[in-house]
Simulated scan of single mutants.
Amino acid sequence: MNAALLAAVLLSAPAPQEGGAAAGPAPPAELTEPQKLSYALGVNVGRSLLADGLDPDPQLFLNGLRDALTDAPVRLSDEEIAALLAGAAERVRKAELAAAEKRAAASRAAFEALAEKPGFKPLSTGEVVRFDRTGEGPKPAPTDRLRVHYTASLAGEEVPFFATRGTNEAGETVGEPIAAPLRGLLPGLRTVLPTVPVGSEVTVGLPPDRAYGPDGGPGVPPNAALTVTVELLDVLPAGSEEDAADPAGTDESGGAP
């Protein structure tokens, strides 16, 4: 295992999953900090391997770890180790691709179902749009900058991959709108939003070719359809303030989804 792979295994453990098996007892409080770190590294490695779909024999895994850490004779050649790790990495890669395609296929089916729901109007460019609230302000021009609240998710999924607002533990709505140039948004939104008056809220279904397309995006597998809810708050004068960076990622033009 090379240094980069080891670092990735040790430092990128997933968070504990809810609803899983009950956590084991905590390490004794009398352990020293270095001993606690050793235990924590073991937990991280185990969780990372399971998250990747790998389920090694615990005793053999510990034997290999001990031999490597103590510079003891290793029972396999470097060539065998490299081949085994490469095979495992390929299995993980294929499993991840299959899972991504399954999500994308489900999103496309959900998009087709969305297009059939009452209130959604299909556009000739492929999007479907529903006005949840119609405002009375101006409609943006293609060169305008917008202040918006929006939530973006894979079509059919309830949990968004990005939202400008949410609910805190007290049940209060929190979050700030973002400002972004219209021409920097995803293709489908560049088509839809010039038809939307300020003060409106719309739900937009984006087919894959009007969203992130075959390359996918942050939290979005390739060829996935999206559902985006946009509340258009204002049209901003060009250059009035810097655009907010969007943690959800950008399209090829460098803007928010």
Score class of each variant (00 low, 15 high):
N2G: 15
A3C: 05
A7I: 02
A8S: 12
L10M: 12
L11P: 02
L11K: 03
G19M: 07
A23R: 04
P27G: 04
A29W: 08
P34L: 04
K36M: 07
Y39G: 01
A51V: 00
G64M: 04
L69E: 12
A72T: 11
V74C: 14
L76Y: 12
D78K: 10
E80L: 11
I81S: 09
A82E: 13
E90C: 00
V92T: 11
V92C: 04
A95D: 10
A98N: 11
A99F: 03
K102I: 00
F111V: 07
A113E: 15
L114Q: 14
K117D: 08
F120I: 02
K121F: 08
S124E: 15
V129L: 14
F131D: 01
F131R: 06
T134K: 14
G135E: 05
A152P: 01
P160W: 03
A163T: 13
G171Q: 09
G171T: 03
E176N: 14
I178S: 08
G184D: 00
L186Y: 01
P187D: 07
L189I: 06
L189C: 09
L189M: 14
V196R: 02
P197A: 03
E201V: 15
E201S: 14
T203S: 14
A211N: 04
P218Y: 14
P218A: 08
V220I: 15
V220D: 08
A225F: 08
L226M: 10
L232P: 10
D234H: 03
P237C: 01
S240N: 00
E242L: 09
A244K: 12
D251T: 15
S253F: 12
G255A: 01
